[in-house]
Write a protein that binds this DNA or RNA. Sequence first.
DNA 1: TTTTCTGCAAAGCTTTTGCAACACT
DNA 2: AGTGTTGCAAAAGCTTTGCAGAAAA
Lengths: 163, 163
Amino acid sequence: MNLIKQEDAGLDSRLNAVVLKIKKLGYSLTPQRFEIIKIISESKSHPSAIEVYNKLKKSYPMVSLNTVYKNLSMLSSLHEVREIKTLQNSVHYDGDTSPHGHAICEKCGKITDVKISEFDFKGFFETRIKKQLTESFHVRNYGVEFYGLCGHCFDLTGASAQD
Amino acid sequence: MNLIKQEDAGLDSRLNAVVLKIKKLGYSLTPQRFEIIKIISESKSHPSAIEVYNKLKKSYPMVSLNTVYKNLSMLSSLHEVREIKTLQNSVHYDGDTSPHGHAICEKCGKITDVKISEFDFKGFFETRIKKQLTESFHVRNYGVEFYGLCGHCFDLTGASAQD
DNA sequence: TTTTCTGCAAAGCTTTTGCAACACT
DNA sequence: AGTGTTGCAAAAGCTTTGCAGAAAA
């Protein structure tokens, strides 16, 4: 119960933060845009543009896919949404912009979040990698991706498919 | 001098390893295929399919883009080439399949390798992340991506573009 | 000789662009 | 009122598919 409340609070504050940023920058907050932000914030499944579109159509049947694309790329350029490139040829979106990892199944394409505490990653980053980068590259965000087989696909094919 | 020799040896052995694997698995080694493998092994710029195609045309002017796609996706499924999804909507290919990171410029799309010694990442991975994953997910490879601005783009726009 | 691979053409998908009408502030 | 946004349609870009002829084992 406590957990659920905390999660909801987290979502609401994320939603609010994005809404505020948009207003602050002078963009308008259309109902479609708001709903898109909401869908992305609430979703845990890293949806693609089409998936967002399909959800959005439930509230706005006349909405166009174009609108979804425009809003997602706007949110992405504001760094309020993270793009994930999967093995399928489409971009998936992640409303959680804090540093964390993804486990991506090479068979079914499923994306699972991997928690990497800021503490852990910063430690690794600061001690090992930063010195290589700072002179020439200015990091805004980072991601760790694991490629392999999810439990389900492993059970089906993993046992026999040894390199 | 020493370094150059070592690098060449590295490339040759990579090339050989891939060729051997292909033969071992019963696939044929056509000249086009060999050249594609060579281009990818030698390239340090993470080329896209079209870029590989353009290089390949110098040796095989009649080659089709289709052939490039088929071979790259074959190499990818054999895990002898790594796909990198960039911000541009195209897949880039990396002939270095060992664990290492990429710094991707959000402005110009340039991809730079980030050395992460196997030792460093394994340590981080084993102590912090593995326990989250092993039960449900079977890792085959991992990558660390840094998003931000390369030195050049930062000099142009970075100073003024503060969130 | 059999299987795999190539090259050409066409189709498929995702994403982008152009533009008039509309909505937000 | 003015600018930003939407929705429709069309175009563009990357990747895949189908198939006959050619090449590899």
